[in-house]
Simulated scan of single mutants.
Amino acid sequence: MSTPHSTRAAVLYGPGDLRVEDRPLRPLGPDDVLVTVDAVGVCGSDMHYFANGSNGQNVLRQPTVLGHEASGVISAKGSCVELEIGTRVAVEPAVGCGTCETCRSGRYNLCPVGTCFGSPPTDGAFAEQIVAARRAVHPLPNTVPLEVGALVEPLAVAVWAVRRAGVEFGDRVLVTGAGPIGILVMQVARAAGATEVIVTDVNDARLAQALKLGASVVINTAGQELELAGVDRLLECSAHPAALWQGLKTLRPAGRAIVVGQAPPSVDGLPLAHLQRWEIELSTAFRSAHAFPTAIAMAADGRVDLAGVLTGRFPLDRAVEALRAPGNDPTQLKVVVRPGDSSA
């Protein structure tokens, strides 16, 4: 089945230089689907690319379409795809090459040669249409609104992080950072059985939303040390080393910490002797693997409130505003770009 040769998309040419223009679409293969995009979440990585032309160690090398948190409707499909045209889907942005040893082991999120929508130079989903592999799309039940389906990707990241942390029934959990990922991690940890989830940040508006969505306690750590003890699991979602160092000191002996937020290339000040003395485990989480089905199920039955994290909507022509909104407005959590909605 043929597809359009191009689509309208928001293309990043350099820091602050985002242009809405026609962008070529790759041909539809037998195992591909064409997705008409309904909504795309703005992630911190998109904001970094827009502001600086880089995100962590990845640098913008050529004009690239941003966006990797997408939902939409299948509008065409390859000959080997069993899904029906009209199926509502959430798009998993990084599914690995599928053939290397890492992918075959099940850890496709760590594929050394894989690509990810919106990670330069791979075009992303700030577009009216995208072509995706069948294995990258997950049908959405009718109980998940299509717009909210764009948040399944960050929810899958939260699910993966909580799995990596090994949160168990009765655990006391600390989440540092009350951005969208931190608030989703908090909700998933509660659903996983944590009896107390403490959330820290320096933004009172975000802390208030975390409390509304289920945090046991919220703490504004601006200018003060975190005075807690006996925490079982720490999930660091702020990407600030100081928050990690503070959080590590709250863990009980043999506790575990997972770095979820985008880590800088290197950091100083790791309290290694403290970790060794108390056998505290420090590990990381990167994207997600096999987490989309769980994320969709949690959103569908209400165990996680995705709508409570969604705070803003922008049409494709106002994608620049969408990329600036979370930084300019402290009340914004997750905003979405809606390519087909001129009234968003």
Rank of each mutant, 00 (worst) to 15 (best):
V304H: 07
V175G: 00
I258R: 08
I280F: 07
A194G: 03
N203Y: 03
V157S: 08
V59I: 07
M47E: 14
V144D: 12
T250I: 07
Q62I: 04
D204V: 09
C97S: 04
L83Y: 11
C97W: 03
I258C: 11
T64Y: 05
F117K: 14
F117T: 01
S288Y: 15
T102V: 15
V157E: 12
S343I: 06
S216D: 12
P265I: 01
N328I: 05
G106K: 12
P141K: 13
P30E: 01
A189D: 11
L213D: 01
F169Y: 14
Q62D: 03
R206P: 02
A210E: 00
A136K: 12
V113M: 10
R107N: 15
A165S: 14
R256I: 04
Y49V: 01
R8M: 04
R26I: 00
L213P: 05
A285P: 05
A194C: 01
R164I: 01
S283Y: 03
D305C: 08
A125L: 03
A10Y: 03
T195Y: 01
A273F: 08
A344Y: 08
A136L: 09
G302D: 11
H5E: 12
A239F: 09
Q332D: 10
C116Q: 15
A242G: 14
E281M: 06
A273Q: 14
L282P: 11
A136Q: 15
V33M: 08
V37P: 00
W160V: 04
L228Y: 07
A208T: 13
V95K: 10
A273S: 14
T99S: 12
V336M: 09
V188F: 03
T331A: 14
L110E: 14
G41R: 01
R61S: 15
R163N: 13
V336W: 05
V89E: 00
L28G: 03
T195Q: 06
A229N: 14
F292K: 05
I130F: 01
G214I: 04
R206L: 02
D46H: 01
P30A: 05
G118S: 12
D32G: 08
I181F: 04
L207I: 02
C100S: 08
A189E: 10
D201I: 01
T64W: 07
E236D: 03
V199L: 08
D201R: 06
Q224Y: 04
